[in-house]
């Protein structure tokens, strides 16, 4: 087990600077999720840590040791790939045993470790099958099995659930969380899905254009987004972002308000608008409202809030929960706004 640190790491493909410069510390035993839109550099960053890409400059430290020049296998990490990358010509047993055999481990030890991994992952009945004879979820578990037998100092996951259907994704997510609790090993998990990030992470690293936008616990990011980008990315449904005169009234270029911080009323309030869509989820109702001069807003109401398409409603923002962002998208606090005034 080990902490991982990046020091001034940058990566360029030819003239294209995918990652300009990143510093990051990941604590021992932490589950850190890299999240961001596609092309934000999150996978590249993971591959830099794995050693599958060479850093253009900077250092990768594992447990304080500089591993920048080491080959992937020498870094003591395990990786689970998006496509699972199982060896198609080998049985499940051989797939899981492969890294151990590469270490030159004794046959008996290998067999014991494979059996252990299979038990942890419920793969006992499939050990003699080929990967193509398995379902998506089973393949995923084999890939994880191959990763855990090495007893790595840290696990790397590269969008491991993106090829699974929704229900399976939720259960595999729980399984990964369970494994993290069981082993307590450092994990770095890359995803573009903010829900996955919020539910799994000890800490989330939000990346955009190869830069770290914000690092923090899920709730920190949710409550105090450092930038307009993070505000829009974290949370579902998305935070309402309002520009123009309404934002200027609060001394910001953009103000943001989460759906649950808008109070809905059928008779009075700050903004008046017309309902374009009401999503009745049972526990909650998400109401999409077109407000003249402000734009389309989403508000959360109680599950029994009775409203339908075309209906007239009033919305009132909770002033204390308002997020203010300046012209460059950075978060500004209310006191700073006053100070500028």
């Amino acid at each position: 087990m080990a902490g991982i640190a990046l020091r001034n790491v940058s990566k360029a493909f030819g003239m294209q600077h995918v990652i300009p410069c990143i510093d990051l510390d990941i604590g021992d035993g932490e589950l850190v999720v890299f999240v961001g839109p596609s092309g934000c550099g999150k996978s590249t960053l993971l591959r830099l840590i794995a050693g599958l890409e060479d850093a253009t400059s900077g250092q990768v430290l594992i447990d304080g040791r500089d591993v920048t020049q080491l080959a992937p296998a020498q870094r003591g990490l395990s990786m689970v790939f998006q496509s699972y990358a199982l060896y198609p010509h080998m049985s499940v047993r051989d797939n899981i045993a492969f890294p151990l055999r590469m270490m030159g481990m004794e046959r008996a030890t290998v067999e014991r470790k494979v059996a252990d991994a299979a038990r942890v992952l419920n793969l006992q009945d499939y050990l003699d099958r080929k990967p193509r004879e398995l379902s998506g979820g089973q393949r995923q578990r084999v890939a994880i099995g191959r990763a855990i037998v090495r007893e790595p100092v840290a696990f790397l996951f590269d969008e491991p659930l993106s090829n699974l259907d929704a229900a399976l994704r939720v259960s595999m997510r729980m399984e990964i969380a369970r494994l993290h609790q069981q082993f307590g090993t450092t994990m770095i998990y890359v995803t573009h899905d903010q829900t996955e990030a919020m539910t799994l992470a000890d800490r989330i690293v939000v990346l955009n254009h190869g830069r770290v936008e914000q690092v923090g616990t899920p709730l920190q990011l949710y409550r105090h987004p450092a930038s307009r980008f993070v505000a829009g990315f974290i949370g579902s449904p998305r935070m309402n972002l309002i520009e123009g005169p309404e934002a200027a009234r609060h001394g910001a270029a953009t103000v943001g308000i989460r759906p649950e911080n808008l109070v809905l009323s059928d008779h009075s309030g700050r903004w008046q608008g017309r309902v374009s869509l009401a999503e009745h989820l049972g526990s909650d109702t998400y109401v999409h409202v077109d407000v003249e001069g402000v734009g389309a807003l989403t508000a959360r109401a109680a599950g029994d809030f009775d409203v339908r398409h075309g209906g007239r409603v009033w919305l009132t923002p909770d002033e204390a929960s308002l997020h203010r962002f300046d012209g460059e998208g950075r978060c500004v606090t209310a006191s700073e706004v006053d100070h500028v005034r």
């Binding site: 794995a50 599958l52 395990s78 990358a85 890294p99 270490m103």
Partner: peptide, 22 residues
Amino acid sequence: PREILEAARMDGATPLRELAYV
């Protein structure tokens, strides 16, 4: 798939073993 070759590298296969086994 490239990822399979990368997996083999992560699993500690030397170039010769990568060739032979994968």
